[in-house]
Design a protein around this nucleic acid. Sequence first.
DNA 1: GAGCATCGGGG
DNA 2: GTGTACGATGCTC
Length: 809
Amino acid sequence: MAKIGFYPLDIDEKEGIRLFGRTEDGKRIMVIDKSYKPYFYIIPEKEINLEKFVNKIKDVEVEEQGIYYTIEDLEVIEKEYESRNVKAIKVTVDKTSSIRVIKNELKNLPEVKEILEWDIQTYKKYLIDREITPLTLCSAEGTITEAKEGLELRGTVNQESEKAYEKYKILAFDIEIYGFLGDEENSNNPIISLALYGSNDYKKVITWKKFKDADENVEVVASEAELIERFKEHILGYQPDFLVGYYSDGFDFPQLKERARKYKIKLDLGADGSNVNFSKKGRTKSSKISGIVHLDIYKFISTIMAGSLHLDSYSLDMVSNEILGDGKLSMNFIDINEAWEKGSIKEICDYNLHDSKLTFQLTEKILPNLVEMVKIIGINIFDVCRLSYGQLVENYLIRRAKEFNVLIPNKPSGDIIAVRRVHTYQGGFVMEPKPGLYENLVVLDFMSLYPSIIVSKNISPSSLNKSKGYKSPDIVEESGRKVNYYFDKKESFIPSVIKDIILRRQRIKEILKGKKDSVLKARSYGLKTIMNAAYGYYAFFGARWYSKECASAITAFAREYIQEAIKGAEKFGLNVIYADTDGFAAVLNKKTENDILNFLDKLNDELPGLMELELEDFYKRGIFVSKKGEGSGAKKKYALINKDGELKIIGFETVRRDWSFIARKTQKKVLEIILKENDGEKAMNYVKDVISKLRKKEVKIKDLIIFTQLRMKLEDYVQIGPHVSVARKMQKKGVKVGVGSPIWFVIKSGKGMIRDKADIPENVKEGGYDEDYYVNNQIVPSVERIFDVLKYNKEDLIKDKTQSSLGDF
DNA sequence: GAGCATCGGGG
DNA sequence: GTGTACGATGCTC
């Protein structure tokens, strides 16, 4: 028997619970723990004799194709379920596969009311019950054997301390392919280059076409098959803890899988010699390797981090520009194809390596967030990386349920989900902005409004009742009936958990004041993310703890609070012009900034404990434009400039690439002139200038290009938009066009439908564009609503400066 | 305002 | 549950 300290990096189940990790001196270790027995709970019918029932089922055993599934233990346990104390029967079985079989055997017995906790993966329950946190110091005790892949220990695991693993070995990778994307055709496209980037300047590019000016880190192999083999060798040689890609679940690994299959190469990268495991859940694929944690950071960034990043796109280029201040090298996929054909392989290698470098650097930046999330939720980083908001909250609640002795509800069935999807309820309070240009504004926000309502009104499915406790404001149900919900004042599970998070985060923020600590910062971020997702979780149709009543009570309380705050502000002398859910913007009138701070202090004294209205910022000027779609929860669309001259542009489509460059630039410039200089006339003249240049055919074709991507096979299109029409022309010219092909086009001058006038930029001579299209469909719509505010109308814009007296037609 | 179509990430 | 599977947004009627 030996005892060894290690950090679990990943966990799964095969033969028993398997934990893959690193020992303190950096050796790879696989621990197999067979001591854990899976279980589920039976909620019996009320009136039955428990002892008799336990006796009746204790010998239940099922045989299927020679395999025996047995019950190992039965125990009556007091638990809380749906706000009641219940006597539940804990059914411990011999192995994970027995859960399903035994459950099916028992579920139809008359004594059984419900069966719970059978649908939670065993490795997750193991982590909870044994109180093990991945990535932190554990110990394993048992018999050790040493193999070339690392240590193998059979025995048991204990949590040793909170000490976190630090020396992560990260290896980022990226592939380039030749050809065009498309679901089926994809497999025919060869991988032409593969790059790896790791710590300590580890760089490798593998390609299979010889070229002259190759760097030392480039390996030229004989074929694509050899490229895949080398990839495997490098991974086994480098022994990363984390193998990281950007959209690698969706592209790189599936592509590697297809190409490896073609050459009959095994992708046996697992520490136990197993192949990469590909799985598909709905639209989302994932690739898992035993013992090497494959992370697709695109998933984490585009779902969880998106909540705080607010980018228009989560492409590697956009994200790395935002987080690292460095973007991709400028090469599109046509360039890659051409470079491969021409033999400019160096270009491809550089591009490929740079992408994997960006992926590596992004991983280093966001890893603290991932790691803290792992420590908070207590599941493995592979899962954390791929969580949705709903799963984030749910996994956290599942982990905390044990200490509250609460039974976990089952996942809803398809029927229940279908019913839940249909039902709606009223959302946040939105005050339509009176469109206009305003001076001297203040924006005030409730800090964590929804979470603090959950806590201060104890809102949860288990405290919900008909007549006592906190009473919600009037809620109008779908039927039109007015109701009030009540929430018992005795603190219940979910509000307690949220309160915990809020307090824990306040303590962290207190420590962080005037100090820099990236770990604590990441922890605070993780806690905030979970807490802010809690309200949405109640309303999420797939949630175990779903409650439309709770969700609608939260928004009802929130509407009341924001409206009260607005009333208070107006009484105080501010002029509120816009509000959305948890905050509002107001004109200062004659009030000073100091007055505002005093107003906040006074108002906050009157609010319940955890609730607080905060100062977001003071603004010199702001423009609020009219919205297209009215109604609650409508998206914000306004722009503000603060005292430092920083612009805050919300909801304008200035950066969408399906608008021509000239339209985007014009919109941005107009907002800038209006906010910075408050000169509507100048902004107007700027637009008129652009229009006049367009009419005089002075605008360069490159500023007029519109970009879209093909989403279907060309022949499947029924609706022929301009991009489809252009794609057809490209195909006729012999260009390969498939799913995902990017289409750049310009609208040429001439007669007929827009789609007939659309053409690839190369076919359009300078000045050969349709100026009417660009004026009416690009420039005017992009600035129209801004000028509405300034009381100019569309005609004013289109009128030529020099001939305005001639009238419209 | 419901119902249908499109699109995301990767090359 | 060896079953299914996205979610947000924009356009059209």
